[in-house]
Nucleic acid binder design. Structure first.
Lengths: 133, 133
DNA sequence: GATAGGGACTCCAGTCACTGGAAGGTCAAG
DNA sequence: CTTGACCTTCCAGTGACTGGAGTCCCTATC
């Protein structure tokens, strides 16, 4: 398979697949013309990576997950640990964003949004009329 | 004020303040020794920037917010629009993260997490036993 | 055989918002 | 006069790609 075919089947951009080769996540064979020649196994690994990335795992996590996937004597506890750590990061991120949303929603509600200059949003950013921490 | 003082009062790292000068967000004066000499106004702007950044606004948004802040003939509608667009981005991001969390929580629950190799998390990533989209 | 197109190749630069580190100048205290 | 804290600039790296330039290859059509 050429890179375009793998890109189509995995949904990953060709650029990304080349990048994944660069950083050693896949090692496709090469044809005589210098084109990458992907096996089914390569395509499968790329699909795995795409799915792991879509769940927000970092590239380094993906590297670990891939090696666990290929290690048939792995302990599922190692996978679960990784996933749990990732869940904590996600939950933290969500909490941060929720806090931002809460503040912003309040400010947006309080701003008239007309053609006059007075604006609670700017007041808040400037440090005025903010509830004491 | 030297950069260290402003860093202490605003909570921004000195490195970040220098960076903000680089990209033209602040233009502190310079003393004879070449040191930056921050006015109260500069410090105030930096605090504004720190607050806006902590609400997740991009640097370019911050630039706009700052110019609106300094434009006393602004329309609050412009500020509100910016904030609302930002709210949409935040909500989108939260939704993405919630989706990841949902999937991951399910997978983590289903994984035994012992010393055996079989693992629903890896199965899912590999494309097996995934609910049909 | 010439040509046109669509794909593939490599390599470099840019993204975003910093952050780390090296190499050196300045200032106040002891 | 030295020490140590602070300041300066400049360069490089982060994560995970993405865009673009310039070139090569393959297939099809005329």
């Amino acid at each position: 398979m050429n890179i375009g075919d793998v890109a189509a089947t995995t949904g990953l951009p060709a650029k990304t697949i080349r990048y994944y080769e660069d950083i050693g996540l896949v090692r496709p064979a090469r044809g005589e013309n210098g084109y990458r020649d992907f096996s089914q196994r390569d395509a499968h690994k790329l699909a795995f990576l795409g799915r792991a990335r879509s769940l927000g795992f970092s590239i380094e996590d993906c590297r670990t997950l891939l090696s666990l996937y290929e290690d048939h004597s792995r302990a599922s506890a190692d996978v679960k640990d990784l996933a749990r750590q990732h869940l904590v990061r996600i939950a933290t991120k969500i909490a941060e964003l929720e806090a931002m949303r809460g503040t912003l929603e309040d400010l947006v509600t309080r701003c008239h949004g007309d053609d006059r200059p007075d604006c609670p949003i700017l007041d808040d950013l400037a440090g005025d009329s903010r509830p004491p921490a």
